[in-house]
Write a protein that binds this DNA or RNA. Structure first.
Lengths: 247, 247
DNA sequence: CGAATTATTGAGGTACGTCAACAACTGTGG
DNA sequence: CCACAGTTGTTGACGTACCTCAATAATTCG
């Protein structure tokens, strides 16, 4: 295999926005700070639900990897309008690739633990390990694809199409090709989903109702959702919603 | 200076979406295929207005650098809905960082010339030059920031806010801090702008009228636009549109 | 200069937003 | 285990920003 970026993009779909799986997660490595591949801090930082991890404008002093829980990264406008640009999960990296200050905020959606790496350590690592640069480049390039997909969603899709796309996206983070009746967990609130999809909470709720009444999904207890008909969801997410059934 | 990505993001703003300025452009280098830094093909490919450079689904066989003209890259839905994810200009790279096939199409907005580099040559280059990996990583990371900015625009901004953001973005590709009465050229059509901003042509036109009547811009012949009041445009683009003037 | 394309403007429709009431959770203490 | 308060989610009624369709005006280009 060549180092081609093709490798990266052909890899697992939708690794997650603004995130990088390229550095080895500490969970896998044995001796925490011994080998060259275990640079992460031993101690995990813990955050509770809705706690701010960092804010837009803070000086970016370290890179973080999520070891448990879910994080949202978001941009805000002065008047409070909020756009969530990604939901991050265990294994995802956070806080990389920005200037001296963060350009977005990160908050815990659920209780979160993460490990840190100082920016200087990270830079040293990058300097020493050209292979790492390649893996990060591949991961970032894949992120960019995901971001473009999200632009299509935000610019051109209807509310039900956005929700279907979102559910599939979440499902594919677990299984690349989700099956009928597969179940996914949505630990974020309707408001979070709305701010990710460029909608309001109410519209998200109505879109859920629509998917329920057309038997594409079922809402289960404990923030679980069952994708009843994956193919229909895919059709819907790609705009095949009403075609053939007009009149 | 360390190789930190901080360097990259602090650099010139808005280099352009899905694009990379990290490889040396052939225009600068002397001996076209002699030195290690002139890997681009000698002969330029030329495309006329609206000509397709490659399409979603084509096998990605080469990387390209634009030497003149403007390119749009876009994603389409089955029913024809179109989202432009970026406008590319001379110096921008194109066709990098995707799987075996392109995930978006590229078309000439104006007559375009570009030079190519086969994927295998590019891979070789990447393999040999770890420094290049770093520059590409930095460029891609910056692209990701721009993409997140665009998500905020598409998810949360009003039509006039989107247009103001777009005009500023284009201006900043020439001058990081544009001055009052600066002029920018908009070679793309209203439809292109609409498909970039997630609007319709008519709404873009009405937003232009609004900016004209409030004396934020002036439309000049030859697709030129004068940014009359940059600060007001910035305010508007950030959502400061109506505040303080209510009632 | 004239045909074709592109942009503007108007009138009316609609998907989504807003505001508000209510219902269903979630978690805690009795 | 249940009561209950606080939160989160759903549903309804209504408003509005943007879309659609259509006519006209301004460009562009042969």
């Amino acid at each position: 295999m060549t180092p081609s970026l093709a490798t990266a993009s052909a890899a697992p779909r939708q690794p997650s926005l603004a995130v990088f799986n390229a550095l080895p997660a500490p969970s896998a490595s044995r001796a925490a700070s011994a080998g060259p591949f275990a640079p992460w801090a031993d101690e995990a930082s813990a955050y509770s639900r809705d706690q701010v991890i960092f804010s837009e404008g803070d000086t970016a002093s370290s890179v973080r990897i999520i070891t448990s829980g879910m994080v949202r990264i978001l941009r805000m406008m002065a008047d409070g309008r909020r756009q969530i640009v990604g939901f991050l999960q265990p294994g995802d990296m956070l806080g990389l690739a920005m200037g001296g200050t963060y350009l977005y905020s990160a908050e815990a959606v659920t209780p979160v633990t993460l490990r840190r790496l100082s920016r200087t350590q990270f830079d040293t690592l990058l300097e020493r390990d050209p292979e790492l640069r390649l893996r990060l480049l591949a991961a970032t390039a894949t992120e960019l694809q995901v971001a473009q997909e999200q632009m299509l969603l935000l610019g051109r899709k209807t509310a039900p199409e956005r929700l279907a796309s979102f559910l599939l996206r979440q499902a594919r983070r677990v299984t690349p090709e989700p099956e009928d009746h597969c179940r996914i967990s949505l630990p974020m609130t309707r408001t979070d989903i709305a701010d990710f999809l460029g909608l309001t909470m109410e519209t998200v709720s109505r879109a859920f109702t629509k998917l329920k009444t057309t038997h594409l999904v079922r809402l289960l207890p404990d923030q679980m959702v069952e994708l009843v008909d994956v193919e229909a969801l895919i059709d819907l997410s790609e705009g095949g919603g009403q075609s053939g059934l007009i009149q």
